[in-house]
């Protein structure tokens, strides 16, 4: 069954190590003071890569039923909708929130 994929210890350590390396990388790039908005794009890009590694290989979506992957992808789509529609309001206000 797809739900009973057993990762080897070596593989899990490799996944963990790649996450440690990417953590170091995301700190290291701030030492170079990349001009905006590229600093944000690089930081989010590394975070997305790390999250994908965790979701695919620690949470086993890579081997799991496609339905669970669809649930995950849908949550991301609805999250982006939430942000997108909110920003359509807040970015185009003439007077950006007087009291708070």
């Amino acid at each position: 069954m797809s739900g009973h994929h057993i990762s080897s210890a070596k593989f899990l350590w490799a996944v963990g190590s790649s996450l440690f390396v990417l953590t170091f990388l995301t700190v290291a790039v701030t030492w170079f003071h990349i001009p905006g908005p590229w600093n944000i794009i690089v930081a989010i890009g590394i975070a997305v890569a790390k999250a994908m590694i965790v979701v695919a290989f620690f949470m086993n979506l890579w081997w799991d039923s496609k339905f669970n992957s669809m649930l995950f992808v849908m949550s991301i789509i609805f999250f982006l909708l939430l942000i997108g529609i909110t920003l359509l309001d807040t970015l185009y206000r003439v007077d950006p929130v007087p009291s708070f």
Partner: peptide, 30 residues
């Protein structure tokens, strides 16, 4: 196997709600 798959799918549905729960705070941040 069916019981295991059902439990896991239920957990993924819960994780979807968790992502959107934190999503509200990420929206405030942005």
């Amino acid at each position: 196997d069916q019981q295991f798959e059902a439990s896991k799918m239920g957990m993924w549905v819960f994780l979807v709600t968790e992502i959107l729960f934190f999503g509200g705070l990420f929206a405030a941040y942005i």
